[in-house]
Design a protein around this nucleic acid. Structure first.
Lengths: 220, 220
DNA sequence: TAGATTGTTAATCGATTAACAATC
DNA sequence: TAGATTGTTAATCGATTAACAATC
């Protein structure tokens, strides 16, 4: 104890850190050297105060009266988020979505590389997508341990998702991104995020319903 | 004025509504007739109080001492979220991710159907994926208007995303789900959600970094 | 009736915003 | 110096949790 120098950052701040980084990388590509919190905020859709507060949880990165150095701040954020190094990642489930994730260029550009893929369909095992061999899911544990892989992506159906999660945890996977449309359970030693594509669309239709209703009720 | 019967539901509550609905659909498939807020909460990972509060924003769906009727509550949530009917949706960008979304079964099961797909690559135009014809993006506006499509999904690269958004808005699209890894701008008449797959992985690595650090600092 | 469980209010907690001194 | 902009504290706002009366 005796050192509580910085309060723990709220979860939403961490998400915004990623947005800041993405914007800083665009700025760097455009040759921008220095940027203000106001500009960052307006680019990612939040206030300047929010940007400064969020960065403040992690240190001091700017100069008063000047702004933030684009290159250095990007490097700092990469270190905070852990993406200054490349993370080899294991994918389970090579259906439509899995294949797309395997071929997705966006991961590599941000420090992730799917270096192992698994399925239980004999038709798929042995094939190569994007120069990654699809292995039998029975080999998961050995393949993952050999390579020191810590991240797993799940792109199987809802039915088998929990089984895959359990397998991943037994193999020592520490972080899981679940695309299966079901809630899975992990011990709190494991970091789990879920992404249900249909649910995201539902958020949108909810708001469309509300707007339609509001317009109707205010017009007569 | 004179009727402010129910306070506006917080955004996070709407997201949880989708999770409740997903769980209710699983329960219904298992033949469960009645469910308590406690059970729903533990299934989706929140408190029973949270479940009741969230539902309370939209009405009264349960019976004291008894619980919630699975079938009826599911129907109510579908109406609130707007997914009691099928939403035809337009997809722009039929690369890896776009093709996967086109073939993704999960959408249909929850009330969404990609009924039009567009690309600007002559190699792709004219092909059929999952019985959906890939059209020239130049036909976007007419095709979308004819069908009364209100939802759009963007699966193009970061460079062209804003152009596609602008085109969608001119064509009358009201809700957009953006998979391109860049921030786009929409007028506030349009509902926009963004999904950056790499950013989701970054959230995970952030927590792995923190945990690693915490363990190290508490052990010596 | 007794036990269970909702609906709802009040209390707590946490995140965002506003403001401003420090400083380039 | 004057104008700009950060870092940080205090004030506000909003969401979650706890508690409990109503009621099945």
């Amino acid at each position: 104890m005796a050192d509580t120098p910085i309060p723990a950052p709220p979860e939403p701040a961490v998400t915004r850190l990623s947005l800041y980084l993405r914007h800083l990388e665009e700025l760097r590509a455009d040759g921008v050297v220095t940027i203000s919190s106001t500009r960052i905020g307006s680019a990612v859709g939040c206030s300047a105060a929010q940007v400064r507060k969020d960065l403040g949880y992690f240190g001091q990165f700017g100069r008063r009266g000047v702004g933030y150095p684009v290159e250095d701040l990007a490097a700092s954020l990469r270190h905070i988020l852990g993406t200054h190094r490349l993370w080899p990642t294991a994918l389970v489930g090579v259906g439509n979505l899995g294949s797309a994730l395997l071929a997705y260029e966006g991961f590599k550009r941000r420090g992730f590389m799917i270096s192992c893929a698994f399925d239980n369909d004999p038709q798929k095992i042995g094939r190569v997508i994007n120069s990654v061999l699809i292995r039998d899911v029975a080999e998961f544990s050995s393949a993952v341990c050999e390579r020191g892989i810590r991240l797993g992506i799940i792109a199987v159906g809802a039915r088998t998702a929990q089984t895959v999660v359990d397998m991943m945890i037994r193999a020592g996977i520490e972080g899981i991104l679940n695309f299966a449309p079901t809630q899975v359970r992990v011990p709190d030693t494991v970091v789990l995020y879920a992404e249900d594509l249909a649910i995201r669309l539902e958020q949108i239709t909810y708001h469309l319903m509300r707007r339609g209703a509001a317009e109707t009720s205010s017009s007569p």
